[in-house]
């Protein structure tokens, strides 16, 4: 057995980033992700890396942009209002095709909202909260182990596709402590001939998104990005199907709400009700094909979110007979309840 340690989600992703070779972190404090910058400020100097507390989220994401342009593995983290401030930078990062990892430990909104866990930033994450035609990879961990494992994966995906990878957690996942087996480095190496390392023995490199002449070049860039997004959609969908094969009733969820759903599924199964759970591991690309298969036999599909209904749009776009899709959500930092999920599923049977 590998050695287990008890670790908080926010710290697990910090350590996992270091395991993945991240040596640069730029961020600005905001609850409930403050353990990430605190952890990185302690650990990165020990690894010869750089932690810098930026003067704002705007500065932090642009420091990430600069560090990524220089060829480094780099990360920033924040929570919902801070992620809103980073949207401009994320759009530029998409346009300049820079790899980086951005963590959003979601809290309740809109506005200052509250500091409890929430899933209200699904639209912002999967639709692109900044300006222009772009996408970013969105990973949705549900356990401390996944916070770590998906962080390691995120750095490889970012470098492979030259894209921002968002780790979309929530306040509960950030704060929860669970047993963790630290992931191993993947050892993958990505050449970065485009990085700004000085024009020695080569032509100057330029990192930019500006394409002033519309007829020739901006659409060209957008089409290049689109090809990349299509490739990612084809190759990188991830999900977990739990007891879905014979499921009469399918729950669809991600992150913390998927754990509550899993409990409901277990309890319903004990009562002889065939419930199953389809859990997203990538929110973009949305695992539509896997959901179509998992939902094939379901009489009803209950989408459960810690929001008032965002992911449900992707669920409806993905399944056959979308009139089967129903919704249960809590917002403002409240959690869906196992009993309420069970009550609704049982009500379908009548």
């Amino acid at each position: 057995m590998n050695e287990k340690i008890l670790m908080k989600g926010n710290e697990a992703l910090g350590e996992a980033a270091i395991i993945a070779g991240c040596r640069f972190y730029f961020g600005y404090p905001i609850t409930p992700q403050n353990e990430v910058p605190a952890y990185m400020s302690r650990r990165l100097p020990q690894e010869g890396g750089t932690f810098l507390q930026a003067e704002s989220e705007l500065a932090a994401i642009n420091m990430v942009y600069g560090a990524s342009a220089a060829g480094a593995r780099v990360m920033t983290s924040s929570s919902s209002p801070g992620i809103s401030l980073k949207q401009e930078g994320l759009s530029y990062i998409a346009g300049a095709e820079l790899p980086c990892v951005v963590v959003n430990i979601m809290r309740g909104g809109p506005g200052l909202g509250n500091i409890a866990g929430s899933q209200g930033d699904y639209f912002q994450s999967t639709r692109g909260g900044g300006n222009g035609d772009y996408r970013q990879l969105v990973l949705t961990p549900a356990t401390v182990q996944e916070m770590a494992d998906l962080t390691v994966l995120a750095f490889d995906l970012a470098d492979e596709y030259r894209i921002a990878v968002l780790i979309l957690g929530d306040g509960y996942l950030g704060q929860i402590s669970e047993a963790l087996v630290l992931p191993k480095p993947t050892g993958k190496v990505f050449e970065k001939p485009w990085a700004l390392t000085g024009a020695k023995g080569r032509k100057p490199n330029k990192v930019a998104s500006l394409r002033l002449v519309p007829e020739t070049s901006l659409e060209e860039l957008n089409l290049v990005l689109d090809e990349k997004y299509k490739k990612i959609s084809a190759k990188e969908c991830r999900s977990e199907s739990y007891l879905t094969e014979d499921a009469d009733y399918l729950l669809v969820a991600y992150g913390t709400s998927s754990r509550i759903c899993r409990e409901a599924v277990n309890e319903l199964r004990e009562e002889g009700i065939k419930a199953g759970l389809f859990r997203l591991i990538t929110a973009w690309p949305f695992p539509a094909e896997a959901l179509r298969i998992a939902s094939a036999k379901a009489k009803k599909i209950l989408t459960v979110e810690m929001s008032l209904g965002q992911m449900i749009e992707d669920v409806k776009l993905s399944v056959k007979d979308p009139e089967r899709v129903d919704f249960y959500g809590r917002s403002g930092g409240m959690l869906p309840e196992t009993d309420e999920i069970k009550r609704r599923i049982k009500a379908y049977g009548n």
């Binding site: 287990k4 008890l6 609850t31 409930p32 500091i115 704060q175 929860i176 402590s177 669970e178």
Partner: peptide
Amino acid sequence: LCVAAMNENKYVSHIPSYGA
């Protein structure tokens, strides 16, 4: 409690109240 039980190979989770 979590660390003690974890070291006896049980599953554990711990969520604190936090922030303000």
